[in-house]
C-alpha cells in the first residue's frame, strides 16, 4: 500500500434494475429513482441512480480491493453526471496518502456523459495488506 498505487478499475453496468434495487434497498422512494415519467417532468431524461447507491458502490469498490478486514473510516463523495439506465460506471482509485495502516484513496467514477462521482475514502487495512 503506497502513495500512487492505482486500484484496478471496476466496471458496473448501470441497469434500470440496479438503480431501482439500490433505491429501494436504501429506503429511498424519491420518484426520480424509479419513475421515468416523473423524472422527465423534473427535467431529467430518465430515472437516475440515487446517491446512497453510489455511496454503497464506492464502499464496495474499496473493500473489494482491500479485502474483508479493511475497515472503512470515512467516505466523502460528490456527484456530477447522473447515472442513467444503459450507461456503464467505471470506478478507478489512486492511493493519495498512507499513514501507518490507514490509506486515503481518491476515487473517480466515470460514465458515458462525464464524471458521475468524485471522492475520497479513508480505509484502515490491518497489517498484511490486501487479501
Amino acid at each position: 500500500m503506497n502513495v500512487g498505487d492505482r486500484l484496478p478499475p471496476l466496471e458496473i453496468p448501470v441497469t434500470r434494475t440496479l438503480i431501482v434495487a439500490g433505491a429501494i434497498a436504501s429506503r429511498d422512494y424519491q420518484d426520480v429513482h424509479h419513475d421515468p415519467e416523473h423524472a422527465r417532468h423534473k427535467g431529467s431524461p430518465d430515472i437516475f441512480m440515487n446517491i446512497l447507491t453510489t455511496n454503497g458502490l464506492v464502499g464496495r469498490y474499496i473493500t473489494d480491493h482491500f479485502g474483508p478486514r479493511a475497515v472503512l473510516r470515512r467516505v466523502a463523495i460528490r456527484l456530477g453526471a447522473p447515472n442513467h439506465p444503459g450507461d456503464t460506471l467505471v470506478l478507478t482509485g489512486t492511493v493519495e496518502a498512507v499513514d501507518g495502516d490507514t490509506a486515503t484513496v481518491r476515487v473517480v467514477g466515470a460514465n458515458g456523459i462525464g464524471k458521475h462521482v468524485t471522492g475520497t475514502v479513508t480505509v484502515t487495512v490491518p497489517a498484511g495488506g490486501p487479501v
Partner: peptide, 30 residues
C-alpha cells in the same frame, strides 16, 4: 438486500459476526 443490490459479496457483512456495510449509515435513518 443492500448487498444484493450493490453486488457486494464482502464476507464481513454475513455470518454470526456480521457488521452492516458502513456506507448503509444513512439507510438506517430513512
Amino acid at each position: 438486500h443492500w448487498c444484493e443490490a450493490m453486488g457486494d459479496t464482502n464476507p464481513a457483512y454475513t455470518g454470526p459476526d456480521a457488521i452492516a456495510p458502513p456506507t448503509m449509515l444513512q439507510a438506517w435513518t430513512m
